[in-house]
């Protein structure tokens, strides 16, 4: 008993002694995440692969850089309370593919465009990385990423385009889709897989 306590206190002392950078999400790591994300997306767009192959890549990028369980849980909203574990898992997977196709489909708008990091600010426990998007033939506009280390790693969990909360629009969309299917979560999951 005593040994265990000693071991535990020793362990926590070691943890406390670890450099802060390993633990706390910093403005720097939040910014790096967004830059790496944008670079990876640009690489896919420049790759000249088929659209189907691109969607697969976008899905992989989405999984790598975003807090997918948070995004899926938020999108399903209050209906998550009555969903089974199997449904939650299946929804999360279907939703990720749907998002990759939905936003990936418009990749042409981003050809030749760039995103410039404007500022990074801490809000409570998370960071907001504000960027300016410069797309061909459009006035520059504001794109803000929200980044947290909720999962233990820096991941983005929401985006705002000129003040429009994309996660909230997705929740609205999923809610409307569920209403149309009389609240049938399985039907929603099946249809999400087909939707682009």
């Amino acid at each position: 008993m005593m040994y265990r306590r000693m071991f535990l206190s020793g362990l926590s002392a070691t943890i406390a002694a670890l450099p802060q950078t390993l633990w706390a999400l910093s403005a720097n790591s939040a910014e790096k995440l967004v830059i790496a994300l944008v670079n990876d997306i640009n690489k896919v767009i420049d790759s000249q692969k088929s659209e189907q192959a691109m969607y697969k890549d976008f899905e992989r990028i989405f999984k790598k850089y975003s807090d997918t369980s948070y995004i899926s849980a938020y999108a399903l909203g209050v209906d998550a309370r009555r969903a089974t574990s199997a449904q939650k898992k299946a929804f999360s997977k279907a939703f990720q593919g749907y998002i990759a196709r939905r936003y990936g489909k418009r990749f042409r708008e981003f050809i030749g465009g760039r995103l410039e990091v404007d500022s990074v600010k801490q809000v409570k426990k998370w960071y907001e990385v504000s960027t300016i998007a410069h797309l061909k033939g459009q006035a520059p506009f504001d794109v803000t990423f929200q980044v947290s280390d909720r999962t233990g790693k820096a991941k983005f969990y929401n985006m705002f385009i000129e003040g429009v909360n994309l996660l909230l629009t997705e929740r609205t969309e999923i809610g409307a889709m569920l209403d149309r299917r009389k609240g049938d979560i399985d039907k929603l999951i099946a249809d999400l897989k087909k939707l682009s």
Binding site: Y70, A73, Y74, A80, F91, V123, K125, S148, R150, Y157
Partner: peptide, 13 residues
């Protein structure tokens, strides 16, 4: 309007 990402139940997703 800010939601705290740490407060949502993401169990199972």
């Amino acid at each position: 309007a800010e939601i705290d990402p740490f407060e949502l139940d993401t169990e199972g997703f």
